[in-house]
């Protein structure tokens, strides 16, 4: 399974994402620059955190027009696995690949600490190694993580089990304590917390590791099934 870690000017969690794949899975992983126009070699695309384009105008507003984003949209359409973390989540909402948006934290403060998350949906390619309702510790580090969408969209998120993670204690004012959501098809997930920073007990938690193992398992299940057929 091949992983791509996108790199925008201002990304700063790209190395963590790369290392998380390398160390927890040992699968091939490449950095892919924002100007790339072909992602066909990759099975999973990680959109990392940071401050792409300086967060100018709005977080993710400019990155979403980077050439590589047209390829990300194509990959999403093809059912490939796409995970946006923090600024990556903001970019995916701006790109319209995930519903809603991330507003300024209610406290107006940049928050940087461990957060307890509840796994709301473990029937996704990203969370199958967790138990439903399990509480995990994953750090957050954001100034704009306050999830918002209109009521109609929220009703759809609920009806379709698109709420993947919630905060046990809401740090930023997100509607319904939302920490991470998926698209309708379930192959695109965005989350504010950083699982790539929680892959070793030396980092304070290894609860993020199973997101990566889940993705690999999902890919293997699908890939092996295809081979048998």
């Amino acid at each position: 399974m091949r992983f791509a870690v996108l790199v925008f000017p201002g990304s700063n969690c790209d190395i963590d994402c790369y290392k998380a794949v390398e160390d927890t899975l040992g699968e091939p992983v490449d950095y892919v620059w924002h100007t790339a126009t072909d992602l066909s070699a990759y099975d999973c695309i990680l959109v990392p955190g940071g401050f792409s384009y300086g967060d100018y105008l709005r977080c993710g507003a400019i990155s979403r027009f980077a050439p590589v984003m047209a390829e990300v949209a194509k990959a999403a359409e093809q059912g490939k696995y796409i995970l946006g973390i923090c600024n990556g989540f903001q970019i995916l909402t701006e790109a319209g690949l995930l519903p809603g948006t991330l507003r300024r934290n209610m406290s107006l403060k940049f928050l940087c600490h461990d957060a307890v998350l509840r796994v709301e949906n473990n029937e996704t390619p990203f969370t199958s190694d967790y138990a439903k309702g399990e509480e995990i510790v994953v750090p957050i580090a954001h100034g704009e993580g306050n999830y918002y969408c209109d009521e109609e969209t929220m009703a759809k998120l609920k009806a379709n089990n698109q709420i993947i993670f919630t905060y046990a204690s809401n740090p930023n004012g997100s509607l319904n304590d939302i920490a991470g959501i998926s698209n309708e098809q379930g192959n695109v997930v965005g989350m504010m917390p950083h699982p790539e920073r929680a892959v070793d007990s030396l980092l304070g938690s290894e609860d993020g590791k199973r997101m990566f193992t889940s993705i690999l398992k999902a890919w293997r299940d699908r890939h092996d099934a295809a081979v048998v057929r």
Binding site: L57, A61, T93, E94, R103, Y148
Partner: peptide, 8 residues
């Protein structure tokens, strides 16, 4: 397209 995010 760019200047406003019409979600909010």
């Amino acid at each position: 397209k760019l200047l406003a995010n019409t979600v909010v």
